[in-house]
């Protein structure tokens, strides 16, 4: 099989800088963007939501973004500076979770949308031992991080 290199122009895949609060129904995160395109803001919100889904399901399943509904962008098309990110669990079933996720700059909403996440069992493609440990460590690290 040929190797395919994908260049994202990012230093890493984790975009969140910090998670400052998390409970059963809500999560708050932070991100300092430097002249970043909007899609990175949407991806950061998706990472925040996925973190929360894993947290409330005790990291027992693989969580992934399924769909974004009603994504509203206001103001700028370039993200620059400190952003506060908020996620609120809206509704859920055994295997699917909807969130209202928003990114604020200076208390003004810049991106908001309804994000749908799904859960799947770990398997040969999504290895439990690797991913469960990785996601637990990630949440611990993000929760302990200082605001940049």
């Amino acid at each position: 099989m040929d190797r395919i290199d994908i260049h994202t122009n990012l230093d890493g895949f984790v975009l969140l800088d910090r998670i400052s609060s998390i409970d059963k129904t809500a999560v708050t995160g932070h991100k300092h963007f430097t002249k970043a395109p909007l899609y990175l803001g949407i991806e950061t919100l998706a990472q925040l939501g996925a973190c929360h889904v894993r947290f409330i399901t005790d990291f027992e399943k693989h969580a992934f973004l399924l769909k974004v509904n009603q994504c509203i962008i206001s103001g700028t098309h370039i993200l620059d500076g400190k952003f506060k990110l908020e996620g609120h669990l809206q509704n859920h079933s055994q295997l699917a979770y909807t969130y209202s996720l928003k990114a604020f700059k200076d208390k003004t909403s810049v991106i908001k949308g309804e994000f749908l996440f799904a859960l799947a069992d770990f398997d040969e493609n999504f290895n439990r031992e690797i991913l469960q440990k990785r996601y637990k460590e990630l949440l611990t690290t993000l929760s302990a991080s200082k605001l940049l």
Partner: peptide, 22 residues
Amino acid sequence: SIDLLELAVAINASFGIDVNDD
């Protein structure tokens, strides 16, 4: 399957019941 996942959440929202997808 993606429609069913979304429907399950919508049913949870509309009727206020726990929905077991299985």
